[in-house]
Amino acid sequence: MADLEELYREIILDHYRSPRNRGELASPPAHRVEGFNPLCGDEVVVSLLVEDGTLADLKIGGSGCSISQSSASLMSAAVKGKPLDEVRRLINTFKGMMSIHEASLGHDHPHDGNGSGAEVLEGEPEEIDLDKLGELAALQGVVKFPVRIKCATLSWNALAQGLDEVAAGA
């Protein structure tokens, strides 16, 4: 069960059992975004408050599997209070870690292939600086389970969408 233990690291289970920054912020002034995973029905609601170029506050609502919920919780802890450009960089780094690279497809693993609709990037994976990800690096085991990548990226996509909408003045 080595793969399973890699997937369900203690940190992940901890964030799943005791999610950080749960709840919703009053909207307005906060901005609210919903994310759905149509495959499994997981839902996440991200409320974000942007002030003076920083993500001043953020709360997570919704429900779903351990991967989607722990990823949302880990995300909230990592981005809250950070300048927006840093948040954006983290989103990109995280999504880079969660991408399947074409070069890694087609080996003889029962979970190979990309039935998940996860993003497949051409060529070799870029080096991802795991140190920059801190606790988030615990989620890297998810890449071995392509169907679960959508669970892990659900809250991140909602956050990115929220930042775009705020920037556009929505």
Partner: peptide, 18 residues
């Protein structure tokens, strides 16, 4: 969660759908 159940069951070779 059903997704997590199915993931663990997969390690036993069990194919169920979440």
């Amino acid at each position: 969660h059903a997704h997590d159940l199915a993931q663990v069951l997969d390690q036993y070779g069990v194919c169920v759908r979440p």
